[in-house]
Design a protein around this nucleic acid. Structure first.
Lengths: 181, 181
DNA sequence: GGGTACATGTAATCAGTTACATGATTTA
DNA sequence: TAAATCATGTAACTGATTACATGTACCC
């Protein structure tokens, strides 16, 4: 078999398709927005491009409508399942990336003004509080359905992270740290 | 003035150079590795490429050694300072990204085996515990120096995040969640 | 039937990484 | 002076995004 390279995006597609049984790119998008997209964002285009590639590699089946929108529905192949499973069995490498423009700005806050920092902090508290609320709502609605335990676990991490963030930025605010001049 | 686009990488370079007064790409790398790089990673090449661009835009000054390694030392210009300050005063947009392959795998854990999940959890606990230790060590050494309050604040966030992560994955382990078959 | 929202796809571009290539300095 | 390490830079590639372009279905 020829060698090929799979990336996080590939596994996101494989994983989503596997869980959904079959799906069009549009449906993948909707599912991603409601779950994985909360902590690992990516553009919509990838959900059209990557499946084409995975189909060529034999990891997905594609079946195209012969009429109307001629949309393509994907399902996972035996090889795709294997690739997904193999990846899940590999040890995880690399540290967690926390890509947060707010944190970046905090890091360099000494180059700005106290007013800028105050606004940053206030904005971050508001944003994280809102996101926390969203997660709490989702958690509640999901619990009623039961079952989907791993997605729930990932959501739990998101929830805890938002709690942490609200607490962190609130601490920043209360300490009223001054910018050295 | 012609319009140009600055990215997080640009501000990382500007911010580092501003704080350091003047620096070569190699020095920027060392500084980044010891700070910002913990939560916002990027390749070394960017610290050679981006300064060239920023110099062309008039945001950095470059002065090249005429002998030896002919290394280039950068410092920030008045325009660079303004760009950095403007950015710090803009409101922050976009949510925090938590890019963690472990979390991604947890999300799709139902497509793997219980053994794979157990290994994932054990690996994550170990990795976060180690990172936590690193942050604690840094925090201690940094406190002795005093002063550099914002970098310390960002470090504090990293520290709390690692604590959270250890707790989260430990909870996962203790719940001994089973993979549905 | 006309407007709006839904849905789909691709082409061009680009930020960032990997791999390549090499020079300079230190130490034994 | 040989080896090891420190330091520097660039070319090629590519994953991913943005912008463009358009078709289909639904609703009034």
């Amino acid at each position: 078999m020829e060698s090929y390279q799979l990336h996080p995006s590939s596994y996101i597609v494989l994983g989503l398709v596997e869980r959904m049984g079959q799906a069009t790119p549009y449906e993948l998008k909707a599912r991603a927005d409601a779950g994985i997209g909360f902590f690992w964002s990516f553009s919509r285009a990838i959900l059209y491009k990557e499946p084409v590639r995975l189909e060529k590699l034999g990891l997905l089946n594609a079946s195209q409508e012969q009429t109307g929108r001629r949309k393509i529905t994907y399902s996972i192949t035996k090889e795709g399942l294997k690739a997904l499973s193999d990846w899940l069995h590999e040890p995880v490498d690399g540290a967690t990336e926390i890509r947060d423009l707010g944190l970046l700005k905090l890091f360099f806050a000494a180059s700005g003004s106290q007013a800028a920092l105050d606004q940053l902090i206030a904005g971050k508290i508001a944003a994280h509080a809102e996101r926390l609320k969203t997660y709490q709502d989702i958690k509640q609605s999901v619990e009623l359905e039961g079952d989907i335990i791993y997605r729930l676990a990932a959501l739990e991490m998101g929830l805890r992270f938002e709690e942490l963030s609200v607490a962190f930025w609130t601490d920043m605010a209360e300490r009223k740290i001054k910018v050295p001049t």
